[in-house]
Design a protein around this nucleic acid. Structure first.
Lengths: 198, 198
DNA sequence: CGACTGATCAGCCAAAAGGATGACCCACTC
DNA sequence: GAGTGGGTCATCCTTTTGGCTGATCAGTCG
């Protein structure tokens, strides 16, 4: 299986490269240090699979790169491999057409296994991520993300085209579910519990 | 130079291991996947230098591990190698006795150079980190960290043994310096500008 | 010494946020 | 077809927060 690595950290690329090279059946077809490179190399090298980081310094991020790769004529499978896991990220990754979402903390053997699964046509998620019931609704997560950006209730209302009263209702529900009583504690808890990412 | 790697991500350990092994003058003496292992291996292997991640899943973190390693009879130099950089982290790392603070995004050549510097007795910081003037006072950073934990002004006052009026004054100064006008925007901006970390 | 910064505190007022309650609509399920 | 959950909105009231002004005190630095 020919794999393209896309990660802005040289250390991570070297690590994946070394681990994959030592594994029968895997070949590293190329490495990309940012999103644009990833798209270009995916088009040029036509790998079977792209291992994609979400956060990559400058330029387009892994999510946008995934979207563009999936718009190629015969797109390779894209598997997200990232340090962070938040519900919001995972949902967006699926929307962008990612075929898997793995964490960098994944033991190498599990990682290889997951890649083979994806190559065989299955979608895959880090086991830890599967055991996570949706705590908040989609709308509530939207609220939280704007909240985390530092917006006031009035700004939230305008941004979401709803009344301030509704914003407050959503907030009350969020506080209730998270067991907090202020917007700042809600953001903190949501980040800790991987519901959103800053 | 015999180096001990301490990082909970197998991928990162493999990457550093591969990069260092290919570099003349560097030997990987061992690998640790958490803080406790790091301390034990530092004592047992007596490396010349420890490359230490700050965030390591379970158990003691890199900071505490650094402290304990420095308490050993003939402690090796400890260099922090982490993804995150916040003023608060850097200050604490120095207090814990770290001899350097590097970011994982550092290009390998720079990394090797920095390690040689440290081995030669110099302390080192990622160049990006040196160009950062102290924006907030120590006290203000304390406030921000409690703020980020979701505390109210009253709680802040109690926790810091000062009056609520003083908390408000500090907050006003912080808002002023960060160019924001609410606690939540202050936390967000502080995180973005690496003054604190969540 | 005087100027400056950082930390401390106070009082006043306006704006924002939070708590409680009730209500309506829609989609889905049992 | 009654119940459930999500989304929407409103009112009333309390607490919290933020803006403003002004003040004292301890260091530090020319």
């Amino acid at each position: 299986m020919r794999i393209l690595l896309a990660d802005d950290h040289p250390v991570v690329r070297a690590g994946l490269s070394a681990l994959l090279a030592a594994q029968p059946g895997f070949t590293v077809a190329g490495e990309a240090a940012d999103g644009d490179q990833a798209v270009r190399q995916a088009a040029w090298l036509e790998p079977d699979l792209v291992l994609m980081d979400l956060q990559m310094g400058e330029g387009i991020d892994g999510l946008e790169a995934t979207r563009r790769i999936n718009a190629l004529p015969t797109p390779p499978a894209v598997v997200i491999l990232t340090t962070y896991d938040s519900d919001a990220d995972i949902l967006r990754a699926q929307d962008a057409g990612a075929r898997g979402y793995l964490l960098k903390e994944t033991p190498p053997q599990e990682l290889f296994h997951a890649l083979r699964e994806v190559a065989a046509g299955t979608n895959t998620l880090s086991p830890r991520l599967l055991r996570r019931p949706a705590l908040l609704s989609q709308r509530e997560i939207e609220i939280l993300e704007l909240l985390a950006a530092g917006r006031s209730n009035r700004e939230l209302a305008r941004a979401m085209f709803i009344s301030e009263a509704t914003v407050k209702t959503h907030l009350a529900h969020i506080y209730d579910k998270l067991g907090v009583d202020s917007r700042i504690a809600a953001v903190r808890t949501a980040v800790d519990r991987r519901l959103i990412r800053l």
